[in-house]
Design a protein around this nucleic acid. Structure first.
Lengths: 215, 215
DNA sequence: GTGAATATGACATGAACATGGCATTGTCTA
DNA sequence: TAGACAATGCCATGTTCATGTCATATTCAC
């Protein structure tokens, strides 16, 4: 990392105009330098791995490997890479998949240059820049996705152990062996589990256990 | 909503100094007005419901009902309420629970006044203001919480429908009725599902379906 | 120290399931 | 157009499960 204070930026963008404009803009801005500008992830991966830029600007819709897959690949060899998605898409699915792949920020291409610079600084500083609408979307997605609080169950510790074994796919016999108890005892525990969960089969119990985070 | 352009803010904060300082600051700032400042959620709920402020600043650590529960309650009668958490806590658990409860933004109390004003504007405009570190944390939490990419399953559409029915706790007979096919056909589909998933029982299939997000 | 809850165990019976093989029909593709 | 795959269907056999009733020992609270 040369030139303390300069943020080294790599660009992956297939549109020639956009890419060249961005590269010039960054190189001509004090405090920033461009380590490379690439048309595709395939071209970008190796240079990015060796150069280790501070921030990577990544388009989503690229020929060949998508930007989202690119993020995943980059994160494989550098889990701390700071990647800022810069794209025209702001649908939930792309946002969701970008974040899951490991992107640290998400901006639209029409973002003004000064905001983009701030975002690059922010992502470099450990932030997660994104425009207001996208941030709110992430919150909504998060809320929807988040695990519901484990339901209050009246199951005893032992019953939860047995239920866990059911989730693991064990037969009664296997559960008996695993816990060193008689298969009749297993039956008994499972009877009680069924009563408490209001179910009538192994598969229902397993579904309920997993959906309600009982195990 | 009086005075077009003025953002009406309610405050819930138990610390007297903090609350009074905030209230004065907001009332003395052009474009903002304070509809009420409360020491507790219990006191705040009713006035907030009748006043319908544009933005609510909410502390987390309150005597009695916590700010997080407060958010939940407010969201019950006004799902579009814009609530900005303003707190000293920035641990994952509080952030996580605030977002799940329905908060739209999350700032620390030591946030400078001008940043706070911007955040109020932003949350009012549909954004989700939070400081850089918290934003990054939300992304991380999101990534950890989010559903892993559905595994490649090679199941046909029909098989996935049947598998869904298994997850719903159906017996073979119920599946046959639900899909208007013979129970023998159900057997056949399930045979194929077992082969493809490498399982040997309904409960194993259900567990695999839920764990690997096949349905 | 009595009662409630828990963990353990047994037995019996009918229902549901797992697995094998086999057949027909339609669709898609090399 | 032959082959692969999907969806539908039937039959048979053995296994596993669901559910009932009952019993004993332990623990913990009231």
């Amino acid at each position: 990392m040369p030139d303390n204070g300069t943020i080294r930026v790599a660009i992956v963008e297939d549109d020639d105009d956009m890419r060249i404009t961005l590269q010039r803009f960054i190189d001509n801005t004090s405090g920033f330098s461009c380590t490379g500008a690439f048309e595709s992830c395939e071209e970008a991966l190796s240079p990015i791995e060796s150069e280790g830029p501070d921030v990577i600007l990544m388009d989503i819709n690229l020929p060949g490997m998508s930007g989202i897959d690119g993020v995943r690949r980059i994160k494989l060899f550098d889990p701390h890479a700071n990647i800022l998605m810069l794209t025209v898409y702001q649908d939930d699915d792309n946002i969701f998949r970008s974040i899951c792949a490991g992107a640290s920020g998400y901006l639209l291409k029409r973002t003004p240059k000064d905001v983009l610079l701030n975002a690059i600084r922010e992502v470099h500083a450990g932030g997660a820049p994104m425009n207001a609408g996208i941030a709110r979307r992430v919150m909504e997605l998060f809320r929807k996705t988040a695990a519901p609080t484990p339901a209050e169950s009246s199951l005893t510790d032992r019953e939860i152990e047995i239920l866990q074994s059911l989730v693991d796919g064990c037969s009664y016999k296997m559960i008996a062996d695993r816990h060193n108890i008689s298969i009749e005892t297993v039956r008994n525990h499972i009877k009680h589990i069924y009563e408490k969960l209001h179910v009538h089969s192994k598969s229902e119990a397993v579904a309920k256990a997993l959906k309600e985070r009982l195990v």
